[in-house]
């Protein structure tokens, strides 16, 4: 027992550099999903209808970095729960994480992941390798498997700049914590089938950062076109996808004016050809 005001038990023990491990030992009730697990809230397997879900995230690499973009819609069953939700977050200086799935849990998971990376960096005095970061995220997702089985799945996508290899890298996950490295581009979430189809036709080697952002916005437009849970650019409210770019200089969120201009151009094109730019046949 320690008296009030002192450093709590466990803080002075040597051991893991992982904040998640420390949290699990010191305050397990604060782990993402702990309360939901206790309540068995989603035991009927219909978690989709009781909590908001986030939808489509796309990512693509360019020469010297990687771009990640997410639409802004969260849905709850057939309702729109939120129209300006942020689904792409910086996880540390050189990486970003995008979330699809149960929104509340996913945001909590991102918060834990951010602290996890910073905690390691402070304790060890060194940054984790990008593979190390990707593996830590896999471990955190694995901890959520029970809830995922009940319909409250969190499926993030992770992207970052590999400072050793000098290029952008993308990792996708499944609900069991399986980690898969993706090449060139990838998409997750309910509209991902359409977004990935669009990226397949739009993506090319040697694309610049700006090209990648345009391709991502086009892909999100296509996802929104065919998936009711994904939002396209909201012109009346001027709500645009959240776009992050990560390069050797760190991460950067593109401001609304920048994304807005690209979205306006994309929509201008769609007014001429609603299905978007046509890829050459041969």
């Amino acid at each position: 027992m320690t008296s009030a005001g002192q450093l709590p038990d466990g803080t002075r023990l040597t051991g893991s550099s992982s904040f998640a491990d420390y949290l699990a030992a010191a305050a397990p009730a604060q782990l993402p999903g702990a309360a939901q697990k206790l309540a068995g809230a989603a035991s009927n397997g219909s978690g989709v209808d009781i909590a908001p879900h986030g939808t489509t995230i796309v990512a693509a690499t360019y020469d010297g970095g990687v771009v990640m973009a997410g639409d802004r819609r969260a849905t709850m069953g057939n309702l729109i729960a939120n129209r300006d939700m942020q689904k792409v977050y910086p996880s540390d200086e050189f990486s970003v994480v995008g979330i699809a799935g149960s929104a509340g849990l996913a945001v909590e998971l991102v918060r834990l992941f951010q602290v996890e990376l910073e905690h390691y960096e402070k304790i060890e005095g060194a940054e984790l390798s990008i593979d190390g970061k990707a593996n830590r995220l896999a471990a955190l997702i694995r901890g959520n498997l029970g809830l995922a089985m009940q319909g409250l799945a969190v499926v993030p996508m992770f992207a970052g700049f590999d400072r050793v290899a000098g290029r952008g890298r993308i990792f996708s996950y499944d609900v069991t914590g399986g980690k898969y490295e993706e090449h060139d581009f990838h998409s997750v979430g309910s509209g991902s089938v359409f977004a990935r189809g669009a990226l397949k036709k739009l993506y090319g080697a040697g694309m610049t950062e700006g090209d990648c952002v345009t391709a991502a916005v086009q892909a999100l437009y296509d996802a929104a076109d065919d998936d009711s849970a994904t939002a396209g650019p909201d012109l009346t409210r001027r709500i645009f996808p959240v776009v992050y770019s990560v390069s050797a200089d760190g991460h950067r969120r593109l401001d609304d004016a920048e994304v807005g201009a690209i979205a306006d151009a994309v929509i201008g094109g769609r007014l001429q050809r609603p299905d978007g730019p046509q890829a050459p046949l041969g």
């Binding site: 450093l7 709590p8 466990g10 803080t11 002075r12 040597t14 904040f19 420390y22 949290l23 010191a26 305050a27 604060q30 918060r111 834990l112 602290v115 910073e118 905690h119 402070k122 304790i123």
Partner: peptide
């Protein structure tokens, strides 16, 4: 060093909570 790590844990836990 022990105290520093304890401080980081305390701060990170408080900021997270």
């Amino acid at each position: 060093e022990n105290l520093r790590i304890a401080g980081v844990r305390l701060a990170d836990l408080r900021g997270y909570s």
